[in-house]
Design a protein around this nucleic acid. Sequence first.
DNA 1: GTCTATATTTCGATAGAC
DNA 2: GTCTATCGAAATATAGAC
Lengths: 202, 202
Amino acid sequence: MSHESDHTQAKERLLDTAENLFARKGFVATTLRDISTELGLTHASLYYHFPGGKEDLFAAVMERNILRHGAGLAAAITEAGSDLRARSRGAAAWLLSQPPIDLIRMTEADMPALPESVARKLMDLVYRELIIRLRSVFEAAVRSGAISASTDSGLVAGAFIGLVESLHSVPFFAVKNTRGDMANELIDILLKGLDYAGGGTK
Amino acid sequence: MSHESDHTQAKERLLDTAENLFARKGFVATTLRDISTELGLTHASLYYHFPGGKEDLFAAVMERNILRHGAGLAAAITEAGSDLRARSRGAAAWLLSQPPIDLIRMTEADMPALPESVARKLMDLVYRELIIRLRSVFEAAVRSGAISASTDSGLVAGAFIGLVESLHSVPFFAVKNTRGDMANELIDILLKGLDYAGGGTK
DNA sequence: GTCTATATTTCGATAGAC
DNA sequence: GTCTATCGAAATATAGAC
C-alpha cells in the first residue's frame, strides 16, 4: 500500500500546486517549470503523472477545481439553512476561500489556447457547478416569496459571482474590513435591491 | 507633413491593435506575432515604433487604454447630468463599449511578469481613473442626499466595476437582452439596495 | 517604415539512467 | 518517482538591407 500511497500523495501534491497556479494565472501564463519549481522537482517529472503534458494536467486540475467549487458551494448553501441572506453569505465566504475564478481570462485567453472540446467541457462545468447552483438559490427564494420574480435569476446569479470574485483583486478598494465583511455588506445591498424581506442577521 | 502623418498613422494603428489584444488576453498570452500578424506586418517591424520591445509596448498601450477608460467615464458621467441612475447607466454603457478590464488577471498574471515600477504605475492609474472616478459619483449622491451614507462608496464603486465587467464574459448567463440592458437591470437593483429615491427612467 | 535573417532564450516534450 | 540530457518549436530581440 505504501507504494500506492506514495504515488497518490505525490500526485495529490502536484494537483494542489498546479491548481493554485493555473487558477490564479491561467493556462498560458503558467509554465510547467513554475509548477515543478514550486514542488522542488524538475519539469520532466510532471510527465510521469500526466503523460499527456500541460494540456492534460490543466484539464484535470481545472475540472477538479470547478467540481470542488461546486461541492463546496452546495455544502455552504445546505449548511446555511433556508434563509436567502445566510445562504448568500455562506456561498460568498466559500468562494472567497478558494482561488479566484476569472471568467474573463478563461474566455479570452485560456479557451482559445485549448482544443475546442476541452474548452467547451470546462465552460459547461463552470456553468453547471457555479451559475446554475447559485441560480437555484435565487429561484428558490422567488418560489418561497422571499423575493419577487421581477428579475431574471440567472442574471442575478452571474452578477453575484462577478461581484464576489472581484473582491479577490482587493488592493483596489479602500480596504478596511476583511473580504468576507465586504462581501456581506454588498450582499445586504443586493438583497435589499431584490426586495428581500426575510430574516437573517443584519 | 505627410512623413509625420504616415508615422503617426502607422503608430496609431499599431496602438489600436495592440490594445485590443493586450486588454483582452493580457501581457503574457499576447505575443508580438499576434499583433504584427493582425496588422499584416512582421513582428520585427514593431521594434521600429517601440525600441523597448514588448514591455514598452504593453506599458504604453495599457496606459493609453486606462486613460481613455477614465476620460470616457468622465464624459459619460457629465453627459448624464446629475441623476445617479442616469450616471450609472452612462458609466456602464461606456465600460461595456470598451475591451474588458480584468483586474484579477492584471493582478495575478500580468503584474508579476512586469517590473515592479511599471506594475505599480499601471495599477495606480486604474485606481485613479476608474475606482476613484466612480467613487466620486456615489459620494456626490450621498452628499446630495440621494442615497444614504451607510455604505462605503469605495466598496460600492469596486463592486460596480466588477459587476459590469463580469458581463463581458456573457455566454455564461442566460442571455436574452443586450449586455447594456442587463447592466441597467443590475443597476436598478443596486440603486434600490442603496435606498435610492431619485428620479430617472425606470 | 517594413523587410529578411539570425541570435538568444524559454517552453513543452521525449529518451533513458537511477 | 525523479533525475539528466537533449530536442524542436516558438517567442523576444537585434542587425542590416531596401
